[in-house]
Design a protein around this nucleic acid. Sequence first.
DNA 1: GTTCTAGAAC
DNA 2: GTTCTAGAAC
Length: 266
Amino acid sequence: MDRESPCRSQIYSCKSAVHCLKWYSKKTLSNTHKITHSLALLLQITAVTTAISRIRLLGAISANSRRNFLMSKHKIVDSGKGEPQSKKTAGHWSQGLYAAVSDESLHVYSDDDLVIIKDKYPKAKYHYLVLPKVKIANLKALDKSHIPLLTKMYDRAADLTKDCSVKKFRYGYHAIPSMGLLHLHAISQDFNSPSLKTKKHWNSFTTDYFVDSHKLIEMLKSHGKVNDMSHHSKLLSEDLRCHVCKTTIKNMPTLKTHIQTCFKDS
DNA sequence: GTTCTAGAAC
DNA sequence: GTTCTAGAAC
Ligand SMILES: Nc1ncnc2c1ncn2[C@@H]1O[C@H](COP(=O)(O)O)[C@@H](O)[C@H]1O
């Protein structure tokens, strides 16, 4: 466990509270004082124990995400009054996946290493997110040691989607994700969904902005890290192009109609 | 006049 | 990431 995590420090404070109780009873305090102090300490222990058991509900999620959980519980914000809210602040929209993975009712699949949930705003008939249970904030945090985990994430996603009514799927990462917490997209290639609305949506799943899981794993094998892809942002404003026949299409409504007939799942 | 996109949101 | 809407494009 992380040495600095609130979880660990709370266990320490719990232990020290017990220690204090023993210490107090040996001291020559009046009986009334002893009882008052002991009761106060017992209340403290109960509160700490409750906090720890709530944190344990978060399962195998790391000390860092427990810290975020505590921050949100205690409404800790790191932005000053009148300042825009920091992206890393608990409660900011970009941290929404932390709450999603913590909610077991959203799990479509879960094991010791990963969780699979449905994408809340699916951009196709089938759209899942695969998240590791150990907190990995972003692609930059990845190194060679993560290859077995990333391979497993792909394997489980492929396994989950093999019985879907649409057979063509892609499994990959956005080059520049908006949401914190590493997540693999598993998305069917029909792109038939009301939540697919904008050019940015389309280009994020159909240009090189979408980095196949295999490609990402190859990057880690060959370079030991994920290549810098900050220049990929320009791909989001490219002209709309059908992912099947590659013709350019003038706008989103036309594209959505076009792919309904152009995409064939065989 | 209607459809569609792009940018602000404290 | 989404929602909302002003104004560009048709
Ligand atoms: N609370 C949420 N639960 C599940 N999926 C979400 C949530 N918020 C956003 N998403 C999806 O997460 C994905 C994040 O995209 P990106 O960060 O670009 O990889 C998008 O496909 C969103 O639709």
